[in-house]
Design a protein around this nucleic acid. Sequence first.
DNA 1: CAAGGGGGTTGCCGAGCGAGCAACAGGGGT
DNA 2: ACCCCTGTTGCTCGCTCGGCAACCCCCTTG
Lengths: 255, 255
Amino acid sequence: MVVRGSSSAHRTLAILTTLGSKEAAERGGLGVVEIARRVGREKSQVSRALKTLDAEGFVERDRESMLYRLSWQVFTMAANAGHPRLLAVAPPVLRRLVGVLGERVHLTVLSHDGVLTVLSQGPARTVQAAGWVGRVTPLHTTSSGRALLFDHGDEEVAELLAGSQFASAGPGAPAGTEEFLARLAEARTAGYALAREEFEAGLVGAAAPVRDFRGQVMAALNVSAPANRMGRDLDAAGRVVLSAARQLSQSMAGC
Amino acid sequence: MVVRGSSSAHRTLAILTTLGSKEAAERGGLGVVEIARRVGREKSQVSRALKTLDAEGFVERDRESMLYRLSWQVFTMAANAGHPRLLAVAPPVLRRLVGVLGERVHLTVLSHDGVLTVLSQGPARTVQAAGWVGRVTPLHTTSSGRALLFDHGDEEVAELLAGSQFASAGPGAPAGTEEFLARLAEARTAGYALAREEFEAGLVGAAAPVRDFRGQVMAALNVSAPANRMGRDLDAAGRVVLSAARQLSQSMAGC
DNA sequence: CAAGGGGGTTGCCGAGCGAGCAACAGGGGT
DNA sequence: ACCCCTGTTGCTCGCTCGGCAACCCCCTTG
């Protein structure tokens, strides 16, 4: 079998990915040369590829600064990505869970080798820590990470963690793959995962897996709060999250 | 100048768009042959292109049904698309507006020749009419549509409306481009746009433009409600929305 | 079991497309 | 005037896909 490089398509997609990065958004867009640098291609190729992307409506260009950025069209696509039904069914469940726990809850999925937050709901009273949605957090320092790996084999998990930086985490973070696997096993028997100051000092969380009609883990429900507010009741919170996750799983199965 | 077709990139992007369509999501994904039919290409090319897209993480495949669908990665991209700052700043404004009006409010942008809803916030009590986000509604039968076209010239507007189906709308919808332009002019002088049963019978709405630091219209704030709840106060609602939109514009300018 | 049909992947070859370079056009700075 | 940086366009050769056909696999039908 001949592996086709499809260099043109690869390059175009690499540009899309680059424009979808956080830094690109923060700068308000990227220029042709800047993108060329990042994807390691000739600026002429990038210039022409961007013209194609523009014609297809994937990117738009600020008339003044000449910078390209992803267009809103990507939003429409996102609404139909992954398991759209999950997005439709989950909000009421999240809201109820917020009502019970009084803390911000998230719906997360496994994306690549990280935890992607796809929905986030907080009590209205708190300061809006908006900006979680679309963000990717590490697998190994979050309760969601463990909940999402419930059904993975140890070797698979080790592979996914290979790229993780075990440094730069909270004080309670697992020291290495072995310790992570131990905590994962513990979480499996409990049915929910707890994380005490693993992601960040002073932050605790609990998570439980959401399963599709076949029983496969497709997402995780997760609550996250300051340790001084939820630290003592974390185990109870875990059970509440588990119950809500089961409920969500049932909603998904009902289709 | 030679226009480069970049047929490979075009095809790849067309596949992405197809997978991002609503029907694709409803079916839970699309197969190779189905996609080939829709984009009008050889199934072999589509098969190979999908392999590339998979390798880049844009799509994923259901192991059992063999169907491809957009991966959650698109979610991450969406968080950085358009004007991400708008997404970060808007939620509190929307929530306040919901508090005042007691009805569902939306943040919309111009996408292609339609109105794309990027944020939606409703009073918790009502039944969640979730699923607005990511949806595209017509330009000519919505208050948002008019608010987004405040600064467009008449010819530009006519061009954008060219593809619109003036049939299949609510009873109050404008009959044609001319009538639309008249209502647009009216909205311009008021500073906000009102729509009475244009999109759908029994549904009214009010919208006002959000402007960036340069004064360019970048989005619209919009409230939508049943006529029997907001019909009489629609003009007042328009003024409230306008005030909120100004506030949002200021937040955007402050950066 | 054979036959048929639909979905999906792979091999193959030549024609057409793009990689890379270079030139050029603008826009600031100094 | 000069340089530096960004971005676009012309051009040519070599390489990559386009299109077809064969093949695999699964399911259904007779």
